[in-house]
Design a protein around this nucleic acid. Structure first.
Lengths: 166, 166
DNA sequence: TATTGTTATACTCTATAACTATA
DNA sequence: TATAGTTATAGAGTATAACAATA
């Protein structure tokens, strides 16, 4: 972990010593920058989510259960783009932690309705606060307005699906 | 892959049916949005990088070799935040593909200097063009100005290291 | 026959440690 | 002894297919 985290000197190496200036402007690094930010988000948030099974993934599921109240486990999985087989593991551990419960769906005895427990709801509130704080540190280097702007742009482009703009 | 890609209904599910409105504004989803964008970037770019060993990872290494000309393999790995052991595999396959070469570093017979071949340099140019095109599709939903703005903000915040702002 | 959820298997990535050859 | 690079092993994460119960 320590070797990977040492991204200190990367800023130096990125100065484009020999390359042409015009090329430097068109530098292809969107994916790289996104990757750096996401990794930093993980590093920051993993601490805030200590105790949540599967960390960010479990947190995401818990949040979807509470906020979106999907009718079935399958709907929950699909809404998050998580595979059903993965959802089984995630829920197993969230249930074991007492954060959510699996109940039978009223009208379909195959399906399960996933609901948060009282303690799960309370935990989610705490974790969301902690994550909000952690996220601030991810976007350091930007002032408040820029941070707000970046969040909006990222959110909007992420939710504008390329295949289904509807 | 088809199950994971069906992120269509997520926009519907994200309308916050029961939650309070003020909470919806403070919704914690930076990491989620970044994850969606990065995954979309991968999907788009993987096609453009067909033929590059290890896809985006190998492309990143090739770009660093050409643009930054790091003195040693270790420096290359550290500048990209890639583990040395991983770098070995990546370079093995880039070498096998004839894109880069390992030469002995002049003054240290332990170290290797990684240089791009002529074909590697030419390939990089082609791949960078293809990636530039692919990246456009990732940020659909934003107009040109917003795209430019997002790229700048993402790049800047990614390169502003939280641990070493110097 | 199709679908919900579970289980099992395999494949990729990554993390760690051990090894070599040089310094 | 410490470092550059390699190799081997183990652990997450994910994708796929097969299965049981129900529709």
């Amino acid at each position: 972990m320590s070797t990977t985290t040492s991204r200190t000197s990367s800023d130096d190496a990125r100065r484009d010593p020999a390359g042409s200036v015009s090329d430097a402007c068109r530098r292809v690094d969107l994916g790289q920058s996104l990757g750096i930010l996401l990794r930093r988000w993980h590093d920051a948030v993993d601490l805030a989510l200590a105790g949540v099974p599967h960390g960010p993934r479990g947190f995401q599921v818990l949040g979807a259960v509470v906020h979106d109240e999907p009718p079935t486990q399958a709907a929950l999985a699909e809404s998050l783009g998580i595979d059903r087989t993965v959802m089984t593991y995630l829920l197993d551990d969230l249930v074991a932690e007492g954060l959510v419960e699996r109940r039978e769906a009223a009208h379909d005895r195959r399906a399960r309705r996933v609901v948060a427990t009282a303690s799960g709801r309370a935990a989610l509130r705490r974790f969301e606060d902690a994550v909000r704080v952690a996220e601030e540190s991810v976007l350091c280097g930007l002032d408040d307005d820029e941070r707000e702007l970046l969040q909006r742009l990222v959110r909007r482009s992420a939710h504008a699906s390329p295949s289904s703009p509807a």
